[in-house]
């Protein structure tokens, strides 16, 4: 159903219409995917083999090269979901709705990776797999927000009708982002405060910081590549549904099976 519900103000849509998006993303995706695999591989090998141990956490610090990038993009992805939802609600841009639908499952997987690796890190260092402190709890809420968005999207027979309620849910949930980020500063938590984003120098030595940034870039490229691929899938699926619906209206009545080609 892409593009046929254009509200007044079509000119804006001309610059990001689904057809153009399919062409651009199709050209970009192989490069993005290759870069993601390459940079992730560099980050993993660097983190596992060449990065030093930590003075207090020994080799468990290597969990950081998975845990922290997953956390960054779990939050970055939700920011993208919130922006897409905002654009979808206010300007009714068809691609914004598609982006939101594509981001949510990817964000949920990244959040799950963040939670699982954090648990594996917490047990040996803190002495607990899980605690209900403000940081851990707010990230768990982020995970449920992603799951809620996915459930809401799938709750409607016509996915286009899910766009508005899902966008409202995503925007309400966006209040959780500053809570996650600043939970370690506002309240006493078991989780330590921020190491990288500080006003003075990062509290991470360059030998540990570099592989972390590389790994973070790799995870970000992977996030972008998978979201692009999923957006393309959603657009094709909607086109398929539109064809089937049009055929149904012509009186055929049956949607499937398709006549043999």
């Amino acid at each position: 159903m892409v593009g046929n519900v254009a509200p007044p103000g079509r000119s804006l849509h001309r610059f990001a219409n689904p057809g153009r998006f399919m062409r651009l993303s199709g050209a970009l995706l192989p490069w993005l995917a290759a870069a993601a695999v390459l940079v992730c591989a560099v980050g993993v090998v660097w983190g596992l083999v060449f990065a030093p141990r930590d003075w207090q956490q020994g080799d468990t610090v290597r969990i950081m090269y998975v845990h922290v990038p997953a956390a960054w993009w779990a939050m970055g992805g939700y920011l993208g979901l919130a922006v897409a939802s905002f654009v979808s609600l206010v300007w009714r841009h068809p691609l914004a709705d598609v982006a939101a639908v594509a981001i949510a499952p990817v964000g949920a997987v990244f959040t799950a990776i963040c939670l699982a690796t954090g648990s594996l890190w917490g047990k040996p260092m803190w002495g607990a797999w899980w605690v209900w402190d403000a940081r851990l709890t707010s990230v768990l809420v982020l995970f449920f927000l992603y799951l809620g968005h996915i459930a809401l999207t799938n709750a409607f027979d016509e996915p286009e009708r899910a766009a508005r309620p899902a966008a409202i849910l995503a925007l309400i949930g966006a209040i959780n982002l500053p809570i996650i980020k600043f939970s370690v500063d506002w309240w006493n938590t078991l989780h330590q405060p921020a190491s990288v984003t500080r006003f003075d120098a990062p509290a991470v030595h360059v030998d540990i910081l570099w592989p972390l940034l590389i790994s973070g870039l790799g995870f970000g490229l992977a996030f972008a590549a998978i979201v692009l691929l999923r957006m393309r899938t959603v657009l094709i699926e909607r086109r398929v549904r539109a064809i089937l619906a049009a055929r149904g209206m012509e009186g055929a009545g049956v949607s499937r099976p398709v006549p043999a080609a």
Partner: peptide
């Protein structure tokens, strides 16, 4: 027992 499963979950999940 903590480092390797983290990498399996992270890379495997992606």
């Amino acid at each position: 027992a903590f480092v390797w499963p983290s990498y399996v979950i992270g890379i495997g999940g992606l």
